[in-house]
Amino acid sequence: MLRRLYDWTMSLAARRSAEVWLAIIAFVESSIFLVPADVLFVPMAIARPQRAWRYALVATIFSVLGGIAGWYLGHYAYESVAKPILEFYGKLEAFERLKTSVGYETLVLLLVTSGLAHLPPIKVVTILAGAVNIDLALFIVSAIIARGARFFLLAWLLRRYGESIRHFIEKRLGLLAGVVAGVLIVLFVGYRLVM
Protein backbone atom coordinates (compact mmCIF):
# COMPACT_ATOMS: atom_id res chain seq x y z
CA MET A 1 0.00 0.00 0.00
CA LEU A 2 2.78 2.45 0.92
CA ARG A 3 4.53 1.87 -2.41
CA ARG A 4 1.32 2.58 -4.35
CA LEU A 5 0.79 5.76 -2.34
CA TYR A 6 4.38 6.83 -3.05
CA ASP A 7 3.99 6.09 -6.79
CA TRP A 8 0.71 7.99 -6.95
CA THR A 9 2.30 10.99 -5.23
CA MET A 10 5.23 10.89 -7.68
CA SER A 11 2.81 10.81 -10.63
CA LEU A 12 1.33 14.13 -9.48
CA ALA A 13 4.63 15.91 -10.25
CA ALA A 14 4.05 15.50 -13.99
CA ARG A 15 0.58 17.06 -13.95
CA ARG A 16 -0.29 20.60 -14.87
CA SER A 17 -1.88 20.95 -11.47
CA ALA A 18 1.33 19.87 -9.69
CA GLU A 19 1.64 23.08 -7.69
CA VAL A 20 -1.90 22.69 -6.35
CA TRP A 21 -1.13 19.07 -5.47
CA LEU A 22 2.07 20.19 -3.73
CA ALA A 23 0.03 22.58 -1.58
CA ILE A 24 -2.49 19.85 -0.76
CA ILE A 25 0.15 17.21 0.07
CA ALA A 26 2.18 19.68 2.16
CA PHE A 27 -0.97 20.61 4.08
CA VAL A 28 -2.19 17.10 4.84
CA GLU A 29 1.30 15.73 5.47
CA SER A 30 1.61 17.93 8.55
CA SER A 31 -1.47 16.51 10.21
CA ILE A 32 -2.67 13.21 8.69
CA PHE A 33 -0.87 12.08 5.50
CA LEU A 34 1.86 9.44 5.43
CA VAL A 35 3.95 10.52 2.42
CA PRO A 36 6.11 13.66 2.85
CA ALA A 37 5.71 16.59 0.46
CA ASP A 38 9.38 16.16 -0.54
CA VAL A 39 8.31 13.25 -2.75
CA LEU A 40 6.41 15.70 -4.94
CA PHE A 41 8.61 18.74 -4.36
CA VAL A 42 11.88 17.17 -5.57
CA PRO A 43 10.75 16.07 -9.06
CA MET A 44 8.88 19.35 -9.54
CA ALA A 45 11.96 21.42 -8.68
CA ILE A 46 14.15 19.29 -10.94
CA ALA A 47 11.72 19.60 -13.84
CA ARG A 48 11.44 23.38 -13.41
CA PRO A 49 14.46 24.66 -11.46
CA GLN A 50 13.50 28.28 -12.14
CA ARG A 51 10.42 27.67 -9.95
CA ALA A 52 12.20 25.87 -7.10
CA TRP A 53 11.99 28.89 -4.75
CA ARG A 54 8.30 29.31 -5.52
CA TYR A 55 7.67 25.62 -4.84
CA ALA A 56 9.58 25.92 -1.56
CA LEU A 57 7.40 28.85 -0.54
CA VAL A 58 4.19 27.00 -1.44
CA ALA A 59 5.33 23.88 0.43
CA THR A 60 6.35 25.91 3.48
CA ILE A 61 3.13 27.93 3.67
CA PHE A 62 0.85 24.93 3.27
CA SER A 63 2.94 22.73 5.54
CA VAL A 64 2.65 25.36 8.29
CA LEU A 65 -1.10 25.68 7.67
CA GLY A 66 -1.39 21.88 7.87
CA GLY A 67 0.59 21.97 11.09
CA ILE A 68 -1.86 24.49 12.50
CA ALA A 69 -4.69 22.13 11.53
CA GLY A 70 -2.83 19.33 13.35
CA TRP A 71 -2.46 21.58 16.40
CA TYR A 72 -6.21 22.23 16.37
CA LEU A 73 -6.89 18.49 16.00
CA GLY A 74 -4.77 17.78 19.06
CA HIS A 75 -6.16 20.67 21.05
CA TYR A 76 -9.87 20.47 20.29
CA ALA A 77 -10.54 17.04 18.79
CA TYR A 78 -8.00 14.65 20.28
CA GLU A 79 -10.41 11.90 21.35
CA SER A 80 -12.79 12.06 18.40
CA VAL A 81 -10.41 12.72 15.46
CA ALA A 82 -6.70 12.75 16.33
CA LYS A 83 -6.64 9.52 18.36
CA PRO A 84 -8.19 7.41 15.54
CA ILE A 85 -5.72 8.94 13.03
CA LEU A 86 -2.78 8.07 15.27
CA GLU A 87 -4.17 4.56 15.80
CA PHE A 88 -4.53 4.09 12.03
CA TYR A 89 -0.84 4.90 11.49
CA GLY A 90 0.28 2.83 14.47
CA LYS A 91 1.58 5.94 16.25
CA LEU A 92 -0.84 6.10 19.18
CA GLU A 93 1.41 4.28 21.66
CA ALA A 94 4.42 6.45 20.80
CA PHE A 95 2.20 9.51 20.98
CA GLU A 96 0.91 8.63 24.45
CA ARG A 97 4.48 8.05 25.68
CA LEU A 98 5.54 11.43 24.29
CA LYS A 99 2.51 13.14 25.75
CA THR A 100 3.29 12.01 29.28
CA SER A 101 7.06 12.36 29.14
CA VAL A 102 7.93 15.59 27.35
CA GLY A 103 8.10 19.04 28.84
CA TYR A 104 7.37 22.32 27.12
CA GLU A 105 10.97 23.01 26.02
CA THR A 106 11.47 19.46 24.78
CA LEU A 107 8.31 19.69 22.72
CA VAL A 108 9.52 22.91 21.08
CA LEU A 109 12.75 21.08 20.21
CA LEU A 110 10.69 18.20 18.77
CA LEU A 111 8.78 20.71 16.64
CA VAL A 112 12.05 21.86 15.10
CA THR A 113 13.52 18.38 14.62
CA SER A 114 10.32 16.97 13.15
CA GLY A 115 10.03 19.95 10.83
CA LEU A 116 13.59 19.47 9.61
CA ALA A 117 13.92 15.70 9.61
CA HIS A 118 10.54 14.12 10.40
CA LEU A 119 12.00 12.88 13.71
CA PRO A 120 9.47 12.11 15.12
CA PRO A 121 6.95 12.36 12.27
CA ILE A 122 5.58 15.89 11.87
CA LYS A 123 1.95 14.82 12.15
CA VAL A 124 2.60 13.28 15.58
CA VAL A 125 4.28 16.42 16.89
CA THR A 126 1.69 18.86 15.53
CA ILE A 127 -1.12 16.91 17.18
CA LEU A 128 0.94 16.55 20.37
CA ALA A 129 1.61 20.31 20.45
CA GLY A 130 -2.12 20.97 20.43
CA ALA A 131 -2.91 18.22 22.93
CA VAL A 132 -0.45 19.61 25.50
CA ASN A 133 -1.43 23.21 24.72
CA ILE A 134 1.83 24.58 23.30
CA ASP A 135 1.39 28.30 22.63
CA LEU A 136 0.02 28.56 19.08
CA ALA A 137 2.18 31.58 18.16
CA LEU A 138 5.35 29.76 19.27
CA PHE A 139 4.19 26.70 17.37
CA ILE A 140 3.69 28.73 14.17
CA VAL A 141 7.09 30.45 14.42
CA SER A 142 8.91 27.15 15.00
CA ALA A 143 7.02 25.53 12.10
CA ILE A 144 7.88 28.38 9.73
CA ILE A 145 11.56 28.18 10.67
CA ALA A 146 11.86 24.38 10.53
CA ARG A 147 9.70 23.68 7.48
CA GLY A 148 11.01 26.72 5.64
CA ALA A 149 14.60 25.64 6.30
CA ARG A 150 13.85 22.17 4.97
CA PHE A 151 12.12 23.22 1.75
CA PHE A 152 14.40 26.15 0.95
CA LEU A 153 17.50 24.00 1.54
CA LEU A 154 16.07 21.44 -0.86
CA ALA A 155 15.34 24.21 -3.39
CA TRP A 156 18.90 25.51 -3.12
CA LEU A 157 20.40 22.01 -3.52
CA LEU A 158 18.20 21.22 -6.50
CA ARG A 159 18.90 24.53 -8.24
CA ARG A 160 22.62 24.23 -7.65
CA TYR A 161 23.13 20.54 -8.43
CA GLY A 162 20.00 19.59 -10.40
CA GLU A 163 19.28 15.99 -11.36
CA SER A 164 22.67 14.78 -10.13
CA ILE A 165 21.67 15.39 -6.50
CA ARG A 166 18.21 13.83 -6.77
CA HIS A 167 19.32 10.30 -5.82
CA PHE A 168 21.46 11.66 -3.01
CA ILE A 169 18.45 13.57 -1.64
CA GLU A 170 16.11 10.62 -1.98
CA LYS A 171 18.50 8.23 -0.25
CA ARG A 172 20.44 10.34 2.24
CA LEU A 173 18.64 13.60 3.00
CA GLY A 174 16.67 11.95 5.79
CA LEU A 175 19.92 10.73 7.31
CA LEU A 176 21.57 14.15 7.02
CA ALA A 177 18.52 15.88 8.45
CA GLY A 178 18.52 13.29 11.24
CA VAL A 179 22.15 14.12 12.03
CA VAL A 180 21.28 17.84 12.18
CA ALA A 181 18.32 17.01 14.42
CA GLY A 182 20.62 14.89 16.61
CA VAL A 183 23.08 17.77 16.91
CA LEU A 184 20.23 20.09 17.94
CA ILE A 185 19.14 17.60 20.58
CA VAL A 186 22.70 17.25 21.94
CA LEU A 187 23.07 21.05 22.06
CA PHE A 188 19.74 21.32 23.87
CA VAL A 189 20.70 18.65 26.41
CA GLY A 190 24.10 20.33 26.91
CA TYR A 191 22.39 23.68 27.43
CA ARG A 192 20.01 22.17 29.99
CA LEU A 193 22.90 20.55 31.89
CA VAL A 194 24.87 23.79 32.04
CA MET A 195 21.90 25.91 33.08
Rank of each mutant, 00 (worst) to 15 (best):
F139N: 06
V20I: 15
P121V: 07
G74K: 01
I145S: 04
M1A: 12
L2F: 13
V35C: 11
R97P: 00
I134Q: 09
A47K: 15
Y89A: 09
G90K: 07
Y78P: 01
I169P: 03
S31C: 15
Y78F: 15
K83A: 13
E170S: 12
A14S: 15
A37H: 08
S164W: 05
G174N: 04
F27V: 14
L34T: 14
L40W: 07
R16G: 15
A137S: 02
T100Q: 08
T113M: 00
V124Y: 03
S101W: 00
L158T: 11
N133M: 03
E93I: 09
L157Q: 13
V186G: 03
L154S: 07
L65M: 13
V180C: 05
A117R: 01
L73G: 02
L136I: 10
P121I: 11
S63I: 03
V64I: 10
I185V: 13
M44C: 08
W71S: 09
V132P: 01
G115E: 12
V42K: 03
I134A: 09
K123L: 15
L2I: 12
A131D: 12
K99Y: 14
H75F: 07
E170A: 13
L153P: 05
T113K: 01
Y89Q: 12
L73P: 01
S80L: 12
M10Q: 14
L158S: 06
A177P: 01
F33W: 14
A149Y: 10
R16Y: 05
V194P: 00
S80A: 14
V39D: 05
S30R: 01
